[in-house]
Design a protein around this nucleic acid. Structure first.
Length: 289
DNA sequence: GTGTTTGTTATCAA
DNA sequence: CTTGATAACAAACA
């Protein structure tokens, strides 16, 4: 479940190795994964290179070295972007790490692959086929961002006042509000549960019932947890791997997510698992009110 | 065969 | 009209 820290980790890693390299070949194994059609997709991208790599919420935005063209990649639930560095051309050379050699791509879940001029390869793997690669122009990109994404929780655009207003005007559960990408861009099930635990708030509470002090705790907890997860290169709970095929280490730091039935590290009571906003939801009945 | 997993959108209900 | 809740999608696993 790639959320902000996982997508940002992939973005940072890929930016180091991909920018400025010409795309020499593309393969589309799953036509429904790309937009527009696979033929157009390949034709437009071949010969171009990435000029920049940005992120909005959980959406990766690759800027191409051609005006008015962007490649959007969304990993959704099970998407992976795995980069294999080029083989050394020197005789007898073998630059593949053991990690890389032990895995062979493309595999049955590879939906798209890109080959670069230096021999490096990027694989988009996605077991569930929810993720996508989409080519858009500037205007479309701006519309997508304007219509779907609220403030970035690690930017100055994320303010306590703004969060407070959004919570006050909603009768949904606080969990549903935090999952809403228009309210905060980049949170998903894991970090919503973790943030609510850190703020001492039960996920089922209606958003407009939060007291100012609780809003304040929540506002501080969200960026704190996201930054901590970023330091650990994100959370691997099920499928997530970074661009080198490595797991994220924040999994060990999770306080409530995936810990239903286990003891709360803080108070020793049993973590409960319920369903809120249609999602598996974990909380400590003692620490969260 | 059944239930569960979630990011996002579509659809339905109030 | 607005708001919120829910279904649907995809595929694999326990």
């Amino acid at each position: 479940m790639p959320e902000l820290p996982e997508v940002e980790t992939v973005r940072r890693d890929l930016a180091k190795v991909l920018l400025g390299k010409k795309i020499t070949a593309l393969k589309v194994f799953a036509p429904t994964t790309v937009k527009p059609s696979a033929a157009t997709f390949i034709k437009k991208l071949k010969g171009l290179s990435f000029a920049d790599l940005n992120r909005r919420g959980k959406l990766l935005i690759f800027e191409l070295n051609q005006p008015d063209l962007f490649l959007l990649i969304h990993l959704k639930m099970t998407g992976q972007l795995i980069y294999l560095s080029p083989k050394t051309a020197i005789t007898g050379g073998h630059s593949f790490s053991q990690e890389e050699r032990s895995r062979s791509f493309p595999n049955q879940h590879t939906r798209v692959s890109l080959t670069f001029e230096d021999g490096g390869r990027l694989f988009f793997n996605d077991l569930r086929k929810f993720g996508y690669l989409r080519l858009v122009d500037t205007k479309t990109l701006e519309q997508i961002i304007a219509n779907n994404y609220g403030p970035e929780p690690l930017d100055k655009s994320f303010t306590q006042k703004g969060l407070s207003l959004n919570l006050k005007k909603s009768q949904r559960s606080v969990k549903a509000v935090l999952l809403d990408q228009k309210i905060i861009a980049g949170l998903g099930n894991i970090y919503v549960d973790e943030s609510l635990f850190a703020a001492g708030i039960r996920p089922i509470r209606t958003a407009n019932s939060l007291k100012p002090v609780e809003v304040s705790q929540l506002f501080k907890a969200i960026p704190r947890i996201l930054k901590k997860s970023l330091r650990y290169r994100g959370t691997t709970f099920r499928n997530y791997l970074d661009s080198s095929g490595q797991k994220g280490n924040f999994s060990e730091k999770l306080q409530v997510y995936g810990r239903g039935g286990q003891k709360c590290y803080q108070c020793g009571n049993t973590i409960e698992k319920i369903r809120v906003a249609g999602r598996g939801t974990h909380y400590c009945p003692q620490c969260q009110k």
